[in-house]
Nucleic acid binder design. Structure first.
Length: 803
RNA sequence: GCGGGUAUGGCGAAAUUGGCAGACGCACUAGACUUAGGAUCUAGCGGGGCAACCCUUGCAGGUUCAACUCCUGUUACCCGCACCA
């Protein structure tokens, strides 16, 4: 056994025995809540990428504790999901057993790495004591009319036999198995997330998320502002279109409606070319099965014969087309087409030989379509637009909208790309949705006191052929009584998506053992909110949006104290393999943290991952660099031989020590972990040059390094006779002592460095100037030239401008 | 197509936010101590030049006494969204 292995174990035991990292609800100390995304405990164990973010947050947690905060730094398990289910099906065991094993592995690895989690608050989303409350919250959504069941075309993976969210089916490919996704109509539980689009947007102002995180949220919500206009159909009836470019309305030469929308179904009896239209609708359904990118090339569609509509501004009769570039579930499912000023409309018009009318001055039809955005800025004027001719685009936007609104056929509206959340999964290993289908009463929610609705304890189940959840085959479980009328009824067999449990786990950590509330209001008021949430870039869009939606809903029904419960969100870069590619078994570039700990120790791995580079940037693994960090540890250990008694800093080191305290403190707070480590290396190098250092010199180095490398620093600190660092205060720096009394600054002539001079902090500008002008090298460069200007930036630089 | 990010020695990266570019570490070279070195120590380490100096932060301009940093344009790579009206 390595020496460091024993030492690391010793201190882990110490922390455990002394409950060093226990967070106390209601403590007098100031609360500080640091959160890392709880992992999905996969079979392959902890990834070195986990180690990066956990160490980063651990370092902050440890420093904050020393600074006197009551730190909540919890850990748990997001353990529902497909891999555990697949594994269980294959091995004929219950997924909870597979999960239990994996959690054990993960927890063991985390403990070995010395993360200061408060394990008393640990839970898994799969614990009935936890998912009881996930189910309870679903019932609140239902009771507030935020959950509904609807037949929707959904992404269907024929291989996994399950419905996928848009997010999981990105690019028309199943995220899990990679087979191509097809469209299928299915009755699904939905959450009315689109009602919250605006709130999710404005709520960002109450957060301190990193800009790129905010942008991710904004893009996902996808707001666009425009006008909805009612369009009369010749011979009766009407429909609406949505446009963000109302100023081009005089340029309409056709309308396009979605083949998958409701409108075409309504119009069907009046359609003359029924067969052609039906064929196109069918074709569209099949199309979404195929690779999308291939389809994006041509603008397909067909004329809807026998039906025309009226352009509301000039009363022109205009044909209606079907086109799959119009989506049934966005906007109104119908668009006005202005081929002269919109690229898609232009392409469609070309394919179907439809005329174009130019309504914005100064552009040929073709170019304008591709330069839609710039005409706004260039003050282009309208033409061919009746009473609006001569107005700028901006003016026309306003006036035309006003006219339509006044006539009662136009409305200013916002549209959002974000849709309602499809909340059903046809899977076994998820939270059962606590709803009962009664032949008399319809859908009836379970009584809250009957929760949790447990998953059945069976190890044998298969997905059904028709895509129902495996639960549908378990008659004992499905058949029940209606809670309202007592009639025989059936349970909902769909389960919740993975995102459900992770949408509120950070609240539960505030009060994890509460068995009569999901979290007490007192606990939430004490902890206030998550001060600092760290996770992967891949979760900054979806997971964060779901979690914020969930919290906003809870806020609106009075169950949480703030509309936003997460203050700062940061995302770390990935750890890539040494070849610069994502680590994967197939590429053979996976680094197992256990191996590294065994050979170099947890402290070396932790220092290395903090030193590896910009925290928010991806970084490639390098074992050579890791060795360098191990060497740094050895160097710090050797420094102990230089220690002599003394409760003061060595005077010649004092300045550097104060600077280093300031630097490490600021760097940890701003995620500049790499420079925190390097400043400690600089300090250690300075110590090494001394013949001797005081106990206090050494003590402060160990303390500053402790948040990143907690084990060996505690050991050396103990050998020195100090009480444990984890129970000691964070060192204080004296601002005055961080300032250099003497400094070497550069002297430039015409912007080029020609020499350096030594100045004292008290030197006045005149003195510095004279020192510079009298410098030998400087004289050589200014000799015989006229001095135009001398710029003295105190403490930084002198620049002499000569002609 | 839209949005975001990145670009600095052989490599990972720093740069007090406009003030000596390359801190710190890795790799490498030479030397010391060694039976030995994946240990330690000393020195060197962007390019050119004997030197004085010159060139150098993807590329091209601009602002400034001074630009890795600000502005304009441009290229390459990475990531997200993608027919969103």
């Amino acid at each position: 056994m390595n020496n460091f292995t024993k030492i690391e174990e010793k201190w882990r035991n110490y922390w455990k025995e002394h409950n060093t990292f226990r967070a106390v609800n209601g403590s007098e100390k100031k609360p500080y809540y640091i959160l890392v995304e709880f992992p999905y405990p996969s079979g392959s164990g902890l990834h070195v990428g986990h180690v990066r973010s956990y160490t980063a947050q651990d370092a902050i947690a440890r420093m904050k504790r020393m600074q006197g905060y009551n730190v909540l730094f919890p850990m748990g398990w997001d353990a529902f999901g497909a891999p555990a289910e697949q594994y269980a099906i294959k091995n004929h065991i219950h997924p909870k057993d597979a999960v239990r094993e994996n959690i054990k592995t993960f927890k063991g690895q985390m403990e070995t790495l010395g993360f200061s989690f408060d394990w008393d608050r640990e839970f898994s989303t799969t614990d009935p004591e936890y998912y009881k409350w996930t189910q309870w919250q679903f019932l609140q959504f239902y009771k507030h009319n935020m959950a509904y069941k609807e037949k929707v075309p959904v992404n269907w993976c024929p291989n996994c036999k399950t419905v996928l969210s848009n997010e999981d089916a990105a690019g028309g490919v199943c995220e899990r198995c990679g087979s191509s996704v097809v469209q299928k109509e299915k009755s699904q539980w939905m959450l009315r997330m689109s009602d919250y689009a605006e709130d999710l947007l404005t709520g960002l102002d109450d957060t301190n998320f990193a800009d790129r995180v905010k942008l991710g949220q904004i893009n996902w919500i996808g707001k666009s502002t425009g006008v909805e206009v009612d369009i009369e159909i010749v011979g009766g009836g009407k429909f609406s279109i949505f446009t963000t470019c109302i100023e081009t309305i005089y340029g309409i030469t056709f309308f396009v409606i979605a083949p998958d929308g409701k409108l075409i179904k309504e119009l069907m009896p009046r359609v003359k070319n029924k067969q052609e239209v039906m064929d196109y609708i069918e074709e569209t359904k099949k199309k979404s099965n195929m690779d999308r990118t291939e389809l994006n090339k041509g603008k397909t569609g067909c004329l809807v014969e026998g039906i025309t509509a009226i352009n509301p501004v000039n009363k022109k009769e205009v044909p209606i087309y079907l086109g799959d570039f119009v989506l049934g579930d966005y906007g109104t499912g119908a668009v006005m087409a202005v081929p002269s000023h919109d690229q898609r409309d232009f392409e469609y018009a070309q394919v179907h030989h439809i005329p174009m009318i130019q309504v914005i001055e100064g552009r040929s039809t073709e170019t304008c379509a591709f330069e839609k955005q710039d005409y706004l800025n260039q003050g282009c004027k309208l033409i061919n637009s009746g009473e609006f001719n001569g107005l700028t685009v901006e003016e026309a936007k306003e006036k035309i909208t006003e006219k339509l609104v006044n006539e009662g056929i136009g409305r200013k509206v916002n549209n959002y790309k974000m849709r309602d959340w499809i909340f059903s999964r046809q899977r076994f290993w998820g939270e059962p949705i606590p709803m009962i289908d009664c032949p008399k009463c319809g859908w009836v929610p379970m009584n809250e006191e009957d929760l949790p609705l447990l998953l059945p304890d069976v190890a044998e189940y298969e997905p059904t052929e028709n895509g129902e959840s495996p639960l549908a085959n378990i008659a004992d479980w499905v058949n029940c009584k209606c809670p309202k009328c007592g009639h025989d009824a059936k349970r909902e067999t769909d389960t919740m998506p993975n995102w459900a449990g992770s949408s509120w786990y950070f609240l539960r950590f505030m009060d994890p053992h509460n068995d009569h509330e999901f979290v007490s209001m007192d606990a939430m008021k004490y902890w206030n909110r998550v001060d600092w949430y760290n996770g992967g870039m891949e979760h900054t869009a979806r997971h964060l949006l779901y979690a914020r939606f969930w919290v906003q809903f809870l806020y609106n029904i009075g169950l949480v104290p703030h509309k936003e419960m997460i203050w700062t969100r940061v995302s770390h870069g990935m750890i890539l393999g040494s070849n610069g590619e994502k680590m994967s078994k197939s590429k053979g570039n996976v680094v197992n943290p256990d191996d590294v700990v065994k050979e170099y120790g947890a402290d070396a791995l932790r220092i290395y991952e903090m030193f590896i580079g910009d925290y928010q940037q991806d970084a490639s693994w390098s074992t050579d660099s890791l060795r360098g960090c191990k060497r740094f540890i050895d160097k710090v250990i050797r420094l102990k031989d230089k220690v002599v008694s003394g409760e003061e800093y060595t005077p010649s080191l004092e300045n550097l020590i104060h600077k280093t305290i300031k630097k490490v403190e600021n760097d940890l707070q701003s995620m500049a972990y790499n420079t925190a480590v390097s400043s400690l290396m600089i300090l250690a190098n300075a110590y090494e040059k001394q013949n001797q250092i005081t106990k206090e010199d050494y003590h402060v180095l160990l303390t500053l390094l402790n948040p990143i490398a907690p084990h060996f620093t505690e050991e050396l600190n103990e050998q020195l006779g100090y009480s444990p660092i984890c129970e000691s205060p964070w060192p204080k720096y004296d601002e005055a002592k961080t300032i250099d009394q003497e400094k070497e600054i550069a002297v430039q002539v015409n912007g080029k460095v020609r020499s350096t001079i030594n100045i004292h902090i008290s030197d006045e500008e005149e003195i510095i100037k004279n020192k510079a002008l009298n410098d030998e090298n400087v004289i050589r460069h200014i000799n015989g030239k006229e001095i135009v200007k001398v710029i003295v930036i105190k403490g930084k630089i002198v620049n002499i401008v000569v002609k």
